[in-house]
C-alpha cells in the first residue's frame, strides 16, 4: 500500500478529494491546507515553463499562458528532476492545443525558445583551432571530402512562420507592428562563448548546416544547399559558423572517394 500514490493523484487532479489520513491541529478541513501543496506543484511548474518560454507568454498574455501551461503540467508533469529539461514537450502540446489554434506560429516560437534553453545548457566544446581550416586549404582537391563537427549547442529551425522576427521583436530589436508572422524563416541558434544567439538564416544556409549535422561532406552539403537556394553563399555561411565558434572539429570522409 502506497499512500504517496494517493497524494500524487490528488495533487495533480483538482477534482479529486484531498487524500485521507491528513489533519489540522484545529480540526479544520485539511483540504484547505492540502491546497498549499497543490498550488506549489502547479504554480512552480507553470513558473518553470514561463521562465523557459517568455516570448510565447508575451504573445498570448500571462493569463492565457498560465492557463495553457497548467493544462500541460497536469497532462505531462516532469519526468526529470532537473527542471532545465522540463519543457521539451511543450511546443508539441501548444501545436495541438485548440484554444491556441488562431496563432499557428506559436508552436514554432516555442520550438525556437526551447532551442535557446538547450543551447544555453549544452556541453562545452572548444572551437576549431584557427589554423585547422587554413591547413586544409593546402590540399584543395580534398576539400570536398571534409567533414565538420558542429558545436553541441547548435540548433536549427526551419519554420513556415517568421519565428526569428517574432522572437527579435520581443527583445526590442524591431517593432512587432512590422512583423508579418506568415513569412517563412529559418533560425540558427548557437552559443557563442557564454551568449546564446538567434540568427535568421537563408534556406540554403539551413540546408547546409543540417547536412553537416547529418555527417555529410562539405561537397555534398554545399551541393544540397546550392540546389535548394541559388543565392547560397558558402563563404559567408562558413564565416558565420567560424566566427561563432560553431565548428569544433574537422575530419576527412575516408569512406568516399575524393572528388
Amino acid at each position: 500500500m502506497n499512500s504517496q500514490e494517493d497524494f500524487v493523484a490528488a495533487l495533480l487532479d483538482p477534482q479529486r478529494d484531498c487524500p485521507p489520513q491528513l489533519k489540522a491541529w484545529n480540526g479544520s478541513d485539511p483540504a484547505a491546507r492540502f491546497a498549499v501543496y497543490r498550488n506549489n506543484v502547479l504554480s512552480s511548474l507553470v513558473d518553470a515553463l514561463a521562465v523557459s518560454f517568455p516570448v510565447v507568454q508575451q504573445l498570448v498574455g500571462e493569463e492565457f499562458f498560465r492557463a495553457m501551461a497548467a493544462v500541460h503540467v497536469r497532462q505531462s508533469p516532469p519526468r526529470s528532476r532537473i527542471l532545465a529539461d522540463y519543457g521539451a514537450g511543450f511546443p508539441g502540446f501548444v501545436e495541438g492545443f485548440p484554444p491556441a489554434a488562431s496563432l499557428p506560429y506559436l508552436a514554432d516560437v516555442a520550438r525556437l525558445e526551447w532551442l535557446r534553453i538547450r543551447a544555453y545548457h549544452a556541453a562545452d566544446a572548444a572551437p576549431l583551432a584557427s589554423d585547422a581550416l587554413a591547413a586544409a586549404l593546402v590540399a584543395p582537391e580534398t576539400l570536398g571530402a571534409l567533414l565538420f563537427q558542429l558545436h553541441p549547442a547548435l540548433g536549427l529551425l526551419d519554420s513556415a512562420f517568421a519565428v526569428v522576427s517574432l522572437w527579435a521583436a520581443h527583445q526590442g530589436a524591431l517593432a512587432i507592428a512590422g512583423v508579418d508572422p506568415y513569412q517563412a524563416q529559418c533560425a540558427l541558434v548557437l552559443r557563442n562563448g557564454l551568449e546564446v544567439e538567434v540568427l535568421g538564416i537563408r534556406p540554403g544556409d539551413a540546408r547546409f548546416i543540417q547536412a553537416l549535422q547529418q555527417g555529410l561532406t562539405l561537397g555534398r552539403a554545399t551541393q544540397q544547399a546550392s540546389a535548394l537556394d541559388a543565392g547560397f553563399e558558402l563563404g559567408a555561411c562558413l564565416a558565420h559558423l567560424l566566427r561563432a565558434g560553431a565548428i569544433t572539429h574537422l575530419a576527412y570522409d575516408s569512406e568516399r572517394p575524393l572528388p
Partner: peptide, 30 residues
C-alpha cells in the same frame, strides 16, 4: 475554456506587409 490570447500577438502586421527583417542578423542574449 474561457481565455483568449491577449498579448502582443494582436500587434503583429497583416500577412501582406513586409517583414522588415534582414537575413543573417544576430540577436544575442546579453
Amino acid at each position: 475554456w474561457k481565455f483568449v490570447p491577449q498579448g502582443t500577438c494582436a500587434q503583429t502586421a497583416s500577412p501582406t506587409s513586409p517583414s522588415g527583417f534582414g537575413q543573417l542578423e544576430a540577436f544575442k542574449e546579453v
